[in-house]
Every structure is written in structure tokens, then in C-alpha cells.
């Protein structure tokens, strides 16, 4: 178990770094998929099967394919990648570094918290999630359906053909 965890963690971190450092956007997306897969592996280690499956289907499957499509349609490659000026880079490094500093300063005094239910391994199973979703969290579940309807209506509105201006 521990060995698997370290292996997956190493793969996740390395592929995440490669997402940032690889030159071609296609390679970035492929590495992102590897990163997501290894995170899904972590979920399985935690016995959260449902989360792992959803993670693979939604992120690795749907969203990443969408990414690839967009990149192919836009025809992005290294040659037409916009070049940032030196000033922008320095500003980005300084602001990012400041945020990192704040995060480290805030967490360096933090204490580890004990897990609430360390013995409950069944919490991530599909059955448990279904029970929670339809009992305790019924209302948020229903509201999210309103959210989806409104998102669909918005998308249809933006894509609707005008009757006069074609």
C-alpha cells in the first residue's frame, strides 16, 4: 500500500511538472491525463471507488477530449505560442512566490488533525454515496438540476440562430 502510494504520488507530481514544462500543448494534455489517472489511483487507495470512476470518466474522458479537440481546432503549436515579455514573467514569479510564502507561513504552525472516523472504510462506496446523496443532501442534489437546466438554456440562447440575420 505504502509503496503504491509513493509510486502514484511520484507519477502525479512528475506528470504535473511535465504539463507545465512541455513545449507542445498536446504533450501537456497527455501528461495532464496521466496526472489525473494517478490521482484516480489515489482515490482507489482511499477506498473511494465512486470518486475514482467519476474522476476518470469526467476529467480524463470528457474534459480532456474536449481539450484535445480545442487544441487541434485552434492549431496551437510552439511556433505561434505568444511570447510573454520579461516584465510579465518577473511579475508572475514575484506574485506567485508571494502567495507561496503566505501559504507556507500560514501552514508552518498548523497541527495535524486527527481523522474523524478512521475506521469507516465504506464511506466512499457507491452505495454509501447514493444513500447520502438522496437522503442527507437531497436538496443540493435537486438544486443542481436547476443549475444544469439554466446552463443549457444559456448555451442554447448563445447558439440560437437568428431568424433574420443569418
Amino acid at each position: 500500500m505504502t509503496f503504491l502510494f509513493y509510486l502514484l504520488a511520484a507519477v502525479a507530481i512528475l506528470s504535473a511538472l511535465m504539463v507545465v514544462f512541455s513545449r507542445s500543448p498536446i504533450n501537456s494534455v497527455i501528461f495532464l491525463i496521466i496526472c489525473f489517472l494517478s490521482i484516480a489511483g489515489h482515490y482507489i487507495l482511499l477506498n473511494a471507488q465512486f470518486l475514482a470512476v467519476v474522476h476518470i470518466i469526467v476529467y480524463t474522458g470528457a474534459i480532456m477530449v474536449l481539450f484535445l479537440f480545442v487544441i487541434m481546432l485552434l492549431n496551437l503549436n510552439t511556433s505561434n505560442e505568444p511570447h510573454k515579455s520579461q516584465l510579465t514573467r518577473i511579475t508572475a514569479v514575484i506574485t506567485g512566490g508571494l502567495l507561496l510564502l503566505v501559504l507556507i507561513a500560514a501552514t508552518k504552525d498548523a497541527v495535524l488533525i486527527q481523522a474523524k472516523n478512521p475506521a469507516d472504510y465504506n464511506i466512499g462506496l457507491v452505495k454509501q454515496i447514493g444513500q447520502t446523496l438522496f437522503k442527507q443532501f437531497l436538496l443540493p442534489f435537486e438544486i443542481s438540476s436547476v443549475l444544469f437546466i439554466s446552463a443549457m438554456v444559456g448555451a442554447v440562447m448563445l447558439g440560437k440562430k437568428d431568424s433574420k440575420k443569418n
Binding site: P140, I143, V146, L147, S150
Partner: peptide, 28 residues
């Protein structure tokens, strides 16, 4: 639908409801 989201957000008693209401209030 944004108004529904705002109303749920105002009536929320936990962070999950609050967040869902907020999203419903901004995305449309």
C-alpha cells in the same frame, strides 16, 4: 434561475447549499 440561486444562497445553513446557490446565481 439566478434568483432561485440567490434565494437558496440566502437561506443556506451549510456551505454546500451556499456554494450551489452562489453558482446558480452567477453562471446564468
Amino acid at each position: 434561475s439566478t434568483l432561485i440561486g440567490m434565494n437558496f444562497m440566502i437561506s443556506s445553513g451549510d456551505f454546500l447549499m451556499f456554494y450551489l446557490g452562489l453558482e446558480l446565481a452567477t453562471i446564468p
